[in-house]
Amino acid sequence: MSWINALVQGVLLGGLYAIFATGLSLAFGVMRFVNLAHGDLAILAAYLVLSTASTMGVSHVVSLPLVVLLMAGLGYVGQRFVFNRTIGPDPLAGILCSFGIGVVVQNLLLARYTATDRYLDAGSIETSTIRINDSVSIGHFSLLTFVCAILLLGSLQIFLSRTSLGRAFRATADDPATAQLMGINDKRIYGFAMAIAFGTVGIAGFFLGARETFAPAAGPNQLLFGFEAVVIGGLGSLWGTLIGGIVLGVAQVFGNQLSVGWNLLAGHIVFLMVLAFRPNGLLGTGVRT
């Protein structure tokens, strides 16, 4: 029975990774940009929640929307004034720029907040559970995370397929030159896409911080998990990202069940196996740069 519980917990954990992966997936889908600072930005958002809550004297949950907006603004500005300048046929400059920014963010957090473990308080929901039977119980908070992942992916899907701005996103992703001819400002679209990506990473940072303790150096692991979810699910597939997150989450929880310390390794190995045997991912369309 403990395996069934592990499966349930793994699936729910997958929701968190899917939220992480959404921003990566969107930025890659729209502008073929891989932001290596993604994980560090999630941790930045978690610390911003801490700081805004304490300066404004409100709870962490209340300060979350503010931080998400702040992150989205940061994403827009960052894309318009920094990342857009690195766009070109060679992805090198963009990759390295974001890598540098990630290291800077991580070390600034270290300088400001020290390496002490911190956590966010999401209220009583953190500890309450739904008991299914003796060995399986579902935490309200994990369930909320998972539902949030589905809502996030669903609304992004609707946004991309139903709205005119979403259509502009897709047009720019397919062919920026022609989209420009049709009167779309691709640089602005990239800014909006990065705003959404940063916003979602802010949400991911909150859920991570409320789930476990975090420190400034926690970012890179989250980047790796989000990336693995994207590749396992398949590049270019939003719902694949959720499947990828679930596969990764289940692999990690099962690994932990096998032997303590194997949770990370099991997740990475499943990722490498997908890469070896299904390089386009489970639901991938084979989109490549």
Binding site: F28, R32, F33, V34, N35, L36, P91, G94, I95, S98, F99, P220, L223, L224, F227, E228, V231, L235, G261, L264, L265, H268, I269, F271, L272, L275, A276, P279, R288, T289
Partner: peptide
């Protein structure tokens, strides 16, 4: 043989994952 399947930024993160696997 594994990481060469990835391109650009995803290649970068892929090599990072492999390094992590060796560490673990």
């Amino acid at each position: 043989l594994l990481v060469f399947r990835l391109r650009g930024g995803y290649f970068a993160i892929g090599t990072w994952v492999v390094a992590e696997v060796f560490r673990l």
